[in-house]
Each structure stands twice: as structure tokens, then as C-alpha cells.
Design a protein around this nucleic acid. Structure first.
Lengths: 418, 418
DNA sequence: CAACTTTTTTTCGGACGTCAAAAAAATAAT
DNA sequence: ATTATTTTTTTGACGTCCGAAAAAAAGTTG
């Protein structure tokens, strides 16, 4: 049954809408906030004065109003108080921990990459390592630890949102690495673990909501194969937060050997090692662990294809056809209005494109191939961070319901404390 | 961006919750409504007196209070006014139009099946036929036509919710049969076209929300293969209302010939004709149109399997394995917590079960096979009607926002008009 | 330079929703 | 008849949004 509604809810939602608008539209006057949110000026004033009192936003006393000649009372601009909160975004990838600090305006003000040894990282050792790495990072930033309100972690592979563990990931030797529990305990902050491609999906929605809304899928071909789903205008993560494992959905029964041990997974045809395996005429049963591919191997293969190397071209063409079949299955099952292709392998898209469309055509009846578009998105590592930050901001906005804000720290020497 | 919230919304939602509780829990006292909905007694009184004034619900002046010995003011029960509205539920299947009339309490009070000739039904002829069939049916029911507020239509095959057309269906010879536009024009009622398996999904949620909520999938093996998806606690229909075409998602590239013309669709291994084709050793490329299967052929095949016929048993075992692969793909992509198997072919489930689980195991890495259950649901034709009615009730509840109700007709001679 | 115009922001009063508490209603128990 | 008990309704308070009016803060004009 749907939950009952009460008046708290409506204030909370409207506050959150205003915060989101402020974060997105930069400094803005109350009147324009009303336009954007469809709230009356009276309501905007009420809510913003609340937010001002809480210190979540601040007025700009700018000496230079940009529009010099305009009658009437000049607009007084509002903006998010960047120092009202602080979030940490962490990406766990092979041999590297990427960390970022972002303020309440959603701006990243510090990044750091720390290498670690994926091959030896397991459930026993990694959590402690991660905590120490974060503590060092936060210490260097001269941020008061208690101003950190959210920690978002993205990992490649299978993550279980319920238990807050990385079930399996190429970034770790071990399995079932607990992340959320140790971090929550070590830091006084909400911690949330997400799949990396889901964060790309969230980032796309944040960056261009007009284009990336409603129902779309993101497929990432990189080190491994990832997917993110935005369904009915929200990120879909499945009952256990494990959805969108496109890479391990089966393509051919008994087919090529996958890193997961099964035969015929999409990943076994599309990922870095699969492409290298195909291009070097290794049998499909070659153990992926014995193939030295990775993003570097992929890049080398793309270079060969660029020079017209036939093996490379054939490998990409075959992968394209498999991709076409995979997308056809997505279209049949989910009817998305858009599919976004991204990841390092997309630099080779021109070698896959024709066969991909051929695969799509072979695999799916025309009636179901009518209303969709495919975007090819240049790969941008930054997307994962932006998705993490966007998600954290969303959670922060909803957290600051009516409760008094915690003491607001000033991580850096910002002058503008009204 | 999320929509702004205002207080209309909250009243609407709480009204709708109360109506839903009344419909589900039968006659009930205000105090219990408060318990169920978590609304205060004051609010319950306010909302119910509103609904009473609108004639959507009515009090019961029962002479016999069921519980004879109890102190205190006796509870005065409320119930939905069944005559407040009337909906038509229509199922279009091969050679038959099934129609039902249901009242505002969600009770069906009249059913009728009218045969028609699917082989000659196309976009030009069918809409008129359907309108006339409905008009006759409604006429026989002695229902004032203007008390009909919603018409729900379910069809097998590919339906386009946006355009309100049946793109392709085994029930029709033609394609792109308009349904919503003609019916909306002919009757002064909202009309909505849905996929039949989606309605089964909706019905399951209505009948047992505790079990069928959050994220689950329904797979129907019958005449053709259908799927319904309930994701994040709502029916998912895709960007164009065409989602969940599991039957035409590809299983084997270049595989068995499907009714849709493509090769290797799930349907080409799982549906009636596929099973008959396999059991009679016809080549996989045999045109489905030349196979006389249908639900009757399927029943015959099940009978053969019951008697230990080897061809039949092998056919079911192979289909089971294919089904296992299909479910594995669903698990990988959507991570549902439950999969419901239904349809006429489920009477043969015991012949498919072992190979289905084998297929699941072959196709999907164990990590992704941890947290789900499979239900096998005896097939019940009634589900589609119940889903249609449940959907119509939902829409009605939300329609009766603050607007005055239309004049309430009394279709039958009901005494209880307070 | 004072009055007018224009635009933004704030204030005020009204309407409406929920809720807690009090009152009323209806019956059983004494 | 009176008291006790339980349900329902009423009342009053509080919170929210909105429209209208007022106030504020400029520029423009005579």
C-alpha cells in the first residue's frame, strides 16, 4: 500500500526542489526560483529564509550587479553555501583508489589517486586499508572530519547494496569485501556502495536531464562490461542492488569462457580480454586470467585496427555483432528510449558499428526496433565521480528535512560567511 | 526535476489510500481505517464524510452487529458504494472477445465471451466490431452507458501504449489495430490498452501484495510467451509500453524460426508451436504457421508426456533448459526477488523443472543466483480480468480527486441506497 | 530633487490539511 | 439510573501554500 501523506512531506519535497535548483542554476534570485519550481514567490521566500537560517544557503552581497541598467528593485541572488557539508566520493578500481572531496554545492575541490595492490586485497585486509587511505586524504585536505556527511563508494563488478559488500570485483582478489559497515563505523557519515556504471547513469541524468530521463540504459565496455539502468525516471538497482549485470547475462549457451567461470557470457565476447583473445586466435576456452589485456591491451588492439590489421578488425566486428544481440535483448525486455554506449572500447566503435546494427536486425523483430536511439558517449572517467556526488547531494538534501543542521564547519578559509 | 508538492496532493493521496483500504478490507469501521492507513481518526472522519457526500462510499445500517457483546459505542461500518462507477474489462484473445463489467467495489457482475474471426480482423474492420460488441454487452447489462468510467483492454502480443494500438498480436491478422482512439470516441470513458501478461502481474500484486511487491517478473508460457515486470513496486511497461517482450528476446543467434520471422527467439523454443515442432521432429526452420498447435496441441503434448512418451518428454526437457537460460538473463539484468511462472504450459512444469534449473546453473554465475525465488502459479484465466479491474480502480480512485462526482446511476436494483 | 515607475521581496490573511484533545454518541455493565 | 467503555465527531492549534497587498529598492522623469 502507498504510504500516507502528511504536510511534512510537502515541505521536505519543496525544500529539496529548491536546493536542487540552487545547486544546478548557480546563484539565482528568488523570483527565478519561483519560475523554475512553480512555487509562489511567497513560498520561495518562506523556504529560502528557512534555509538561510539553517546556513544551507547564503545571499550574495555582490557589489557589481551584472545587469547595470534595469529598473526596479535589484534581485538579490542566493546560492548554496558550499561549506554547509562535505562528501567523499570514492572509486575502487583495479590497483587504484580514487578519492574526491566535494562541497555542498557539488563542486569537487580535491582529488587524489592512491595505488594499492588489487591482487592481495581481500575482506580481511582491505577495509582497514581503505579507512586509513581515506583518513590520510581527509587529513591532507584540512577538512574537519565531522563535516563529512556522506561517503559514496563505487566499485566495478557485483555489489550487494543490502549488505554493503562488494561481492565480486576485478579490483579485488577476495570476495564479499565489506565496505559500508567499516566506513560507517570509522566515520560519522552515511555510507553508500554503488555499482560504477550505475553512477555513470546517475551522472548522465544529472548532466543532461532533458536527454537522459525516463527510461534508458547505459552499457559500458571497458575493463569488463557494465550496465546501468534508468527506468521510469529513476535509477534501477534491482531487489538486491545487483541488477544490470549485462556482462554476465548469457549470449551463447556453452560459448566462450568468461572470467566468472561460466560459458557464453556477454563479457566473454565484449571485454578487453575477449577482444584480445579473439584477435590473437586463442581458443574461446582460454582462461581470461592468462590473457594480459586490460585497458592497455585494448588500446593496443584499437591501434592495430586503426592501421587496418585484419585480426583486430575481425575481432571488433564479431564483438559488434554480439553487442547488437545484447542490445536487442535489452530492447525486447525493457523498451528503453535510449541506449548509451560508453567505455574505453567505444574508441573502436567505428569498427563495431556496422556489425552491431546487423546483429540488432538479426536478433529483433522490427516492431520492437522502432522507438529508440543509440548514443555513443566518449568515455570520461569523471562521470563516476560526478554520479557519486550527485547521489550524495540528493541524499543530503533529503536529510536536511527539518532537523537542525549540524555545526557548519569551514574547511577552507572562505570569506563569505555572511 | 521532481514536481513541487502542494496540499491537494496529500489529500488526494490519502483519499486514494482510504478508498483502496475500503475496497480491499470490505466493510470496515473508521477506527480500523485509521489503524490500517496510519491516519488519525480525525482525518479519517474528514475524508470519509467527504467521500460519503460524494456518494463514493456508504454507511451500513446493519440491524445485526456481528459482535453482539461489546461495550462502547458500536462501530458503524463503511463500504464502497458499488454503484458509484462502472468499468469494462476486455480481453482480446484468439477468436474471442471476453468482456466483463465491474462495479466500483471491484466486483465483476457480468461476463460474456463473444467469438470473432481473428483471421480476418484488421485495423479497418476490428474497431467497429469491438465497439458494437461492447455496446451490445453493455445494453444487455442494463447499465446506463454514462456510468461507465473506464474501459480496460488487454491483448496478447505487442501493444503500443502511446498510440493505443495493438502493434502485432496473434489475435489479429492485421497489424497496428487502433483500440484506444475508437473506444474513447465511442464511449465517454477513459480507455487504456495493456499487455495481457502485464495485467496478470498487476493482478498478482492486487491479490497478494505481501508476496508480490517490490521487484518481480512474471513469465507466461501459453499461446506464445509473455512477460510482465513489477520493478521498484510498480508495473514497468517501458518507454513505449512495449517492454517485457521476453518471448522475442533472442536465445540463440540463427536458431529456431519464430512466428515473428526472426531466428532464435525464446518463443521459438518455449511456446506451443515450438514444443509441438520439437516433439514431432520437425526441423527448427518449419514455419510456425504450418504447425497446428495452440493450447489444445499443448494439452495433447502434455498428455503424451504424462504417459511417458519420449519425444514429448525430450521436448519439454529442452524447453526447460531454454527457459533456464532465459530466466538467468532476467536475473542478471534485473535482479528480481521473485519470478513467477504461469500459463498453460506450466501444467508440464514437472517435465521442465530439472532441466530449467540446470540451464540456470549453466548460464549464470552463482553470485547472481543467490537471492530469488521461483513460483509456479497454476494458470488462471481470471487473472487478466482481475488485473484490468485493479488497474481501472486505481485510475478511478485517482480521478475522483476533488471534482464532483458525476451523477451516480443505479445499474441494478440495489436496496442499500442510503 | 521629489514624484513616479518598475521590479523584487516580504508580509498578511485566507484556505485547507493533519493531528491531539475534548466532546458527543451509543451501548454494556452495574 | 448511573457508570464505564468504545467509537465518532468536533474543536482548536499548527503548518503549509497561495494570492493580494504592502514594502523595499532601485531607475526614470519632470
Amino acid at each position: 500500500m502507498t504510504r500516507k501523506a502528511d504536510r511534512d512531506q510537502i515541505r521536505r519535497q519543496n525544500r529539496s526542489i529548491i536546493l536542487k535548483a540552487l545547486r544546478r542554476q548557480g546563484p539565482i534570485a528568488r523570483i527565478d526560483l519561483g519560475q523554475i519550481t512553480h512555487l509562489s514567490p511567497a513560498t520561495v521566500t518562506a523556504i529560502t529564509s528557512d534555509l538561510l537560517a539553517q546556513g544551507l544557503i547564503e545571499g550574495i552581497e555582490s557589489e557589481e550587479p551584472k545587469a547595470p541598467q534595469s529598473r526596479g528593485r535589484p534581485r538579490s541572488l542566493l546560492r548554496i553555501n558550499p561549506d554547509a557539508a562535505c562528501v567523499v566520493a570514492i572509486r575502487l578500481s583495479v590497483n587504484a583508489i580514487d578519492m574526491s572531496l566535494a562541497n555542498f554545492a557539488g563542486e569537487t575541490f580535491l582529488n587524489k589517486r592512491v595505488p594499492f595492490d588489487s591482487a592481495s586485497a581481500d575482506a580481511a585486509s582491505f577495509p582497514m586499508l581503505l579507512i586509513e587511505t581515506i583518513e590520510t586524504f581527509v587529513g591532507e585536505a584540512a577538512v574537519q572530519p565531522d563535516s563529512i556527511r556522506e561517503i559514496g563508494v563505487a566499485a566495478q563488478g557485483v555489489v550487494d547494496k543490502g549488505s554493503g559488500m562488494v561481492v565480486w570485483s576485478p579490483a579485488f582478489a577476495g570476495r564479499n569485501i565489506p565496505i559500508v559497515a567499516p566506513l560507517t563505523k570509522a566515520f560519522d557519515a552515511e555510507c553508500i556502495l554503488s555499482n560504477d556504471t550505475n553512477m555513470i547513469t546517475e551522472a548522465l541524468h544529472w548532466i543532461d536531464p532533458a536527454r537522459y530521463s525516463d527510461t534508458f540504459a547505459v552499457v559500458m565496455l571497458d575493463y569488463g562490461v557494465g550496465m546501468g539502468l534508468y527506468l521510469d525516471n529513476r535509477l534501477f538497482e534491482g531487489a538486491n542492488g545487483m541488477a544490470a549485470e549485462f556482462g554476465h547475462s548469457n549470449h551463447i549457451p556453452g560459448g566462450a569462457l568468461c572470467r566468472c567461470g561460466k560459458r557464453g557470457c556477454m563479457e566473454a565476447y565484449l571485454s578487453d580480454y575477449a577482444l584480445v583473445r579473439a584477435a590473437t586466435h586463442l581458443p574461446e576456452t582460454t582462461d581470461p586470467k592468462e590473457i594480459n589485456a586490460g585497458v592497455a591491451g585494448l588500446a593496443a588492439l584499437i591501434a592495430r585496427a586503426d592501421q587496418g590489421d585484419n585480426d583486430a578488425l575481425t575481432a571488433f566486428a564479431s564483438a559488434g555483432r554480439v553487442l547488437g544481440y545484447g542490445l536487442a535483448r535489452l530492447l525486447a525486455i525493457l523498451d528503453p528510449k535510449r541506449i548509451v554506449l560508453t567505455g574505453a572500447a567505444m574508441r573502436a566503435f567505428r569498427f563495431m558499428e556496422a556489425s552491431m546494427y546487423r546483429g540488432l536486425e538479426e536478433a529483433l523483430v522490427e516492431d520492437l526496433r522502432q522507438n529508440y536511439e543509440i548514443d555513443v558517449m566518449p568515455w570520461n572517467e569523471d562521470f563516476i565521480r560526478r554520479g557519486l556526488v550527485a547521489q550524495a547531494m540528493d541524499r543530503l538534501d533529503k536529510d536536511y528535512l527539518g532537523t537542525e543542521t549540524r555545526k557548519i564547519a569551514s574547511p577552507r578559509n572562505r570569506g563569505a560567511a555572511a
